[in-house]
Amino acid sequence: GATAVSEWTEYKTADGKTYYYNNRTLESTWEKPQELK
């Protein structure tokens, strides 16, 4: 079936920290989303 993983994109900030952005909800988070675990 369809999965929600594709909504999240992993980015890195200029200082090398990783964060996650959800293209559907426009939410961003420092925590790894449940969908990616």
Rank of each mutant, 00 (worst) to 15 (best):
T13Q: 04
E10F: 04
P33N: 02
T29G: 03
R24M: 15
E27Y: 04
T29N: 04
A4D: 11
T25A: 01
T13M: 06
Y21A: 04
W8L: 01
P33H: 02
R24P: 03
L36C: 05
E10R: 03
E31G: 04
G16D: 04
Y21S: 04
A14P: 13
Y21P: 01
A14Q: 10
T3H: 12
T13A: 08
R24L: 15
E7W: 08
T13L: 05
L26G: 15
T25Y: 03
G1T: 14
Y21I: 12
E10V: 11
D15A: 07
K17D: 07
A4F: 10
Y11C: 07
W8K: 00
R24E: 13
T13S: 06
T13G: 08
Q34V: 11
L36G: 05
V5Q: 11
K12I: 13
G16E: 02
Y21T: 09
K12A: 06
S6Y: 09
R24C: 09
G1W: 13
E35C: 05
E27L: 06
N23D: 10
L36V: 06
K37C: 06
T3G: 13
E27N: 04
D15S: 09
K37I: 15
A4L: 12
E10D: 03
S28P: 03
Y20H: 02
E35G: 10
T9R: 10
N22R: 00
G16S: 03
T29P: 01
E10M: 09
Y20M: 01
D15Y: 05
K12R: 13
P33I: 02
A2G: 12
A4K: 05
A4C: 06
Y20T: 00
Y21H: 09
G16N: 04
E7Q: 05
E27F: 04
T29L: 07
A14S: 11
A4T: 14
Y21M: 07
E35I: 05
G1M: 13
T9G: 06
L36K: 03
E27Q: 09
A14M: 09
W8I: 01
A2K: 05
S28V: 15
T3V: 11
S28Y: 15
W8V: 01
Y21K: 07
T18S: 10
E31F: 08
P33W: 03
T18I: 11
E31N: 07
A4G: 11
K12L: 11
K12W: 06
L26M: 13
Y20R: 00
Y19C: 07
A4N: 12
A14D: 09
G1R: 01
A14T: 10
P33S: 02
T3M: 13
D15G: 07
W8M: 01
E31Q: 08
Y20L: 01
E7Y: 06
E31R: 05
N22A: 00
N23P: 06
G1N: 13
T13I: 03
T3R: 00
W8A: 00
A14E: 12
W8H: 00
N23T: 09
A2V: 13
K17V: 10
A2F: 12
K17I: 09
E35N: 08
T9L: 09
S28N: 06
Y20Q: 01
T25L: 03
Q34G: 10
S6K: 09
A2M: 13
T18L: 09
S28E: 09
T18Q: 04
K37N: 14
K32I: 10
L26T: 10
A2Y: 12
L36Y: 12
T3I: 13
R24T: 15
E31M: 08
A4M: 11
D15R: 03
G16R: 01
Y21W: 11
E10K: 04
Q34N: 13
K12F: 08
N22K: 00
R24D: 11
G16Y: 01
T25I: 01
E31S: 06
T25P: 02
T25F: 02
T25N: 02
K37M: 15
G16T: 00
S28D: 04
T9D: 05
S6L: 08
E27R: 04
N23L: 08
T13Y: 03
K32F: 05
G1S: 13
S6I: 09
Y20K: 01
G16V: 00
E7G: 05
G1V: 14
N23V: 07
T3Q: 14
E35W: 06
K17L: 11
E27G: 03
L36T: 05
K12S: 07
E35P: 07
S6P: 11
L26P: 02
T3P: 12
E31A: 07
T9F: 08
A4P: 13
E7S: 05
E35V: 07
W8Q: 01
E31L: 09
E27W: 03
E27V: 08
E10H: 03
K12Y: 10
A2L: 13
V5S: 11
E27M: 07
Y21F: 14
E35L: 05
D15H: 05
E35F: 06
P33V: 02
D15P: 01
K32E: 06
D15W: 05
S6F: 10
T9E: 11
Q34H: 11
R24K: 15
T18E: 04
T3A: 12
N23H: 15
N22L: 00
L26V: 02
T18W: 05
V5R: 02
S6T: 10
A4R: 02
T18N: 05
K37T: 13
V5H: 12
N23W: 13
G16H: 02
T25H: 01
L36F: 12
T18F: 08
Y21E: 07
W8S: 00
Y21N: 02
E31W: 05
A2R: 03
K37L: 14
T29V: 14
A14H: 11
D15C: 07
K17G: 05
Y21V: 15
L36R: 02
R24W: 14
T13R: 04
T18M: 05
N23Y: 07
L36Q: 06
G1P: 14
V5Y: 14
A4Q: 13
V5M: 12
T9Q: 12
D15M: 05
K12P: 02
S6G: 11
T18P: 07
A4V: 14
S28R: 10
D15F: 05
Y20E: 01
T25S: 02
G16Q: 03
S6R: 08
K37F: 15
K17M: 09
W8D: 00
E35K: 04
E10A: 09
V5P: 13
Y20G: 00
V5W: 13
E31P: 02
A2T: 13
E35Q: 09
K32M: 13
K17F: 08
E35S: 10
A4I: 13
G1Q: 13
T9Y: 10
N23I: 08
K17P: 01
T18D: 04
G1F: 12
A2N: 13
G1H: 14
K37A: 14
T3N: 13
K17Y: 08
A14K: 10
K32L: 10
S28T: 15
G16F: 02
L36M: 09
K37Y: 14
T9P: 00
S6C: 08
A2P: 11
T25E: 03
R24G: 09
N23R: 07
K37G: 15
S28I: 15
P33Y: 03
